Amino acid sequence: MAAEISAGSPPMVRFERVVKRFGDLEVLRGLDFEVRRGERVTLIGPSGSGKTTILRLLMTLERVTSGTIEVDGECLSHVRRRGRLVPADERHLRRIRRKIGMVFQQFNLFANMNVLRNLTEAPVRALGLPREQAEARARELLEMVGLADKALEHPSRLSGGQQQRVAIARALAMEPEVLLLDEVTSALDPELVAGVLDLLRDIARSGDLTVLCVTHEMRFARDVSHRVLMFDHGRIIEDGPPEQIFSDPAHPRTRAFLQAVLDA
């Protein structure tokens, strides 16, 4: 059971009237929601309901069609000039993006770099950390994820579960305030899933990270989340604590989705 978050905690992430279209396809439809600082929120729902698009918008891999996204009180993709919101430049995007780390479905490790360089390259280049300091932090993270002995290996010599652990450590090496998790076990063999989820449980419950997670692992969602949001066709149709969502969902679409997922 997740510890309670104070009702007075400020929002770390805020979506306001966010619309996202790809051509004629409207993926997000006037989306409004907040995630408070230190809160762990899981997004569930069928494929194509807009969950991963939310994470990609936060990483600025996509831009909103309309509406605004705020991170830590600052507008993400726009800035205010002379009383008007205008698209932000790359410098602004990079500064806000430094607060956010993401672990993708695919591991996205640099094949030409060993594990240690995978963890240190961004902190050195983007954060300006001295290489010795970045390497010390990287080795601490590799110890935490159980891969201290793999620092000099290349990703091709690691199993899928080990590569995902490296990807998690790499996201944490940037010391993000918000951690995004996008179906991080979907590319793993079933026998590797439990170990990665156990690691993520420990990470999610430690410190004051704000976590936004997309997953079909319902037990994981129940264990780590303060809130669960059920998405369907680009809208939130149910929002509540995991014990309510999983034990007594109010919306018939939520009940049907959970029955299909849990019986699979």
Score class of each variant (00 low, 15 high):
Asp32Phe: 05
Gly146Trp: 07
Pro249Thr: 03
Lys99Val: 03
Arg37Asn: 05
Ile245Phe: 11
Arg63Leu: 08
Leu76Pro: 08
Ile100Glu: 06
Ala204Thr: 13
Val71Cys: 00
Glu34Ser: 03
Arg17Gly: 10
Pro242Tyr: 11
Arg29Asn: 07
Ala256Cys: 08
Met218Trp: 06
Leu31Thr: 12
Glu243Ile: 02
Arg201Cys: 08
Arg235Trp: 07
Thr42Gly: 05
Gly8Leu: 09
Gly38Trp: 06
Gln164Trp: 10
Arg56Met: 09
Gly146Val: 00
Phe231Lys: 14
Glu135Asp: 11
Arg219His: 06
Ser206Asp: 15
Arg91Lys: 12
Lys99Ile: 02
Gly45Ile: 05
Glu16Val: 07
His233Lys: 09
Pro123Trp: 02
Leu119Phe: 15
Arg40Cys: 11
Asp202Cys: 00
Glu62Trp: 10
Val145Asn: 00
Glu140Pro: 08
Phe22Ile: 07
Gly234Pro: 15
Asn118Val: 00
Val261Lys: 00
Val124Gln: 05
Gly45Thr: 14
Glu74Val: 13
Ala122Ser: 11
Ala2Gly: 06
Thr65Lys: 04
Gly83Met: 03
Leu127Cys: 02
Met12Pro: 10
Glu135Cys: 06
Ala171Asp: 05
Glu153Arg: 15
Glu143Gly: 05
Ala126Pro: 04
Arg17Asn: 14
Leu152Met: 06
Val19Ser: 04
Leu43Trp: 00
Glu74Leu: 00
Ser66Pro: 07
Ile245Trp: 13
Arg235Ser: 11
Pro46Gln: 04
Gly207His: 12
Phe257Ile: 04
Asn108His: 13
Ser6Gln: 13
His251Leu: 07
Gly45Trp: 04
Ala187Gly: 03
Thr215Cys: 01
Asn112Cys: 07
Thr185Gly: 05
Met59Pro: 13
Ala138Val: 10
Gln163Phe: 07
Leu119Thr: 08
Cys213His: 15
Gly101His: 15
Ala134Asp: 12
Val224Glu: 11
Pro155Cys: 05
Leu28Ala: 06
Leu142Pro: 09
Gln106Trp: 12
Leu209Thr: 03
Cys213Pro: 14
Thr120Cys: 00
Ala111Ile: 03
Thr185Lys: 10
Phe220Gly: 00
Ile245Ala: 05
Ile100His: 11
Asp198Asn: 12
Leu180Gln: 12
Arg219Asp: 10
Gln133Ala: 09
Leu181Phe: 13
Thr254Ser: 00
Leu141Cys: 02
Pro46Val: 03
Phe33Leu: 08
Leu179Trp: 01
Arg81Val: 06
Arg36Ala: 09
Leu93Ser: 03
Asn114Leu: 02
Leu129Arg: 11
Pro130Lys: 07
Asp149Asn: 14
Met174Val: 12
Arg40His: 15
Glu90Asn: 13
Ile168Tyr: 03
Glu183Cys: 08
Met59Tyr: 14
Glu217Gln: 01
Leu28Met: 15
Gly67Pro: 05
Pro155Ala: 01
Val71Trp: 01
Arg63Cys: 01
Pro11Arg: 11
Val228Asp: 09
Lys51Arg: 11
Asp263Met: 09
Glu26Arg: 10
Gly8Arg: 12
Leu180Tyr: 15
Pro190Ala: 00
Glu121Gln: 07
Gly30Asn: 15
Arg235His: 07
Leu209Arg: 01
Cys213Asp: 14
Val115Ser: 00
Arg235Pro: 03
Val19Trp: 14
Arg137Cys: 10
